[in-house]
């Protein structure tokens, strides 16, 4: 059993590895499998994706190759008799421990990335450079609240805008809420996705690279009702100076947020009054 398995594997491994190595840069460069990535976190996610693709790709080619090889080689022949064996202890050990090692490797590889992206302790919430934006989702629209040029929420120059406008090269911290059902903010190019859950305020962050200045789309990735498919949002990334100018402009052009909770107000952010967030 073992020697034949070994020679079969040896015959397969070299060409498979070659194909995988040749194909990999092609995938990575042209975004053949993944869309363009515009953040360092996104790049790290992509690297992990390609590592997993390489490992699973080899396993895929190896196992499917063996399957097809066995199907052809061991097809029934007139008068042939199958080899009688009920198993092999060593083979079981090998094919339990080897995948276990690979799985452990993949598990360990991703700890750091996940921690950097998701752990509250690693988020740039205290970074003086960070831009904080409040995101409020409702059926079927995204609303964004900006602190305005004074960088403090709950003041006169706060404003609400239907588009996410952020600078490149600076961390952007999102405080996210939903007022009705679960929504999920998804920007494929940022490799960013986070559910917005009614009853919770969820913090998430991203940092777009300089040079990525253009318009992007925000998708809602969680079924939120019959018009879920229309919940398309827009995001614009600007160079820092342009963004600061735009921020001042929007703050001046938009009326201040009515935090008084008056029933006549159509301002959706009145449901997220200053008493429910700490002034920063």
């Amino acid at each position: 059993m073992i020697p034949i398995l070994k020679t079969t594997l040896r015959r397969l491994v070299a060409p498979l590895a070659l194909v995988a190595t040749l194909a990999m840069p092609a995938f990575a460069e042209h975004g053949f499998l993944l869309p363009e990535s515009i953040s360092d976190n996104g790049d790290k996610i992509d690297q992990l994706f390609y590592v997993i693709l390489a490992v699973t790709g080899l396993v895929f080619l190896g196992t499917e190759g063996l399957l097809i090889y066995f199907i052809i080689k061991y097809r029934a022949r007139e008068g042939g008799k199958a080899h009688y064996t009920t198993g092999n202890h060593r083979a079981e050990l090998i094919w339990t421990i080897t995948p276990a090692a690979f799985l452990l490797l993949i598990a360990v590889l991703q700890f750091g990335i996940w921690q950097d992206i998701k752990f509250p302790s690693r988020m740039p919430t205290d970074d003086p450079d960070a831009v904080e934006v409040h995101v409020l989702a409702q059926q079927f629209a995204w609303k964004f609240r900006y602190a305005g040029p004074d960088r403090v929420f709950g003041t006169e120059d706060d404003y609400t805008y239907g588009k996410l406008v952020v600078p490149s090269g600076r961390p952007v911290v999102l405080q996210m809420r939903s007022v009705d059902v679960i929504h999920s903010l998804f920007v494929p190019e940022l490799r960013f996705k986070q559910d917005l859950v009614p009853g919770l305020t969820i913090t998430a962050w991203f940092q777009a690279r300089e040079g990525s200045e253009r318009d992007y789309e925000i998708a809602c990735a969680e079924l939120c009702g019959a018009s879920h498919y229309t919940m398309r949002g827009e995001m614009e990334i600007l160079a820092n100076e342009d963004w600061e100018a735009r921020d001042r402009e929007l703050s001046a052009a938009n009326a201040p947020i009515d935090y008084a909770l008056s029933d006549s107000s159509t301002e959706i952010f009145r449901f997220w009054p200053p008493s429910e967030f700490s002034a920063n």
Partner: peptide
């Protein structure tokens, strides 16, 4: 084999950020 291996991508939490849903 295909269905099993594609599961590993989603089990990887950071990759899952992108391919979830």
């Amino acid at each position: 084999i295909i269905g099993g291996l594609s599961g590993i991508f989603m089990a990887a939490t950071p990759v899952d950020i992108h391919i979830h849903d």
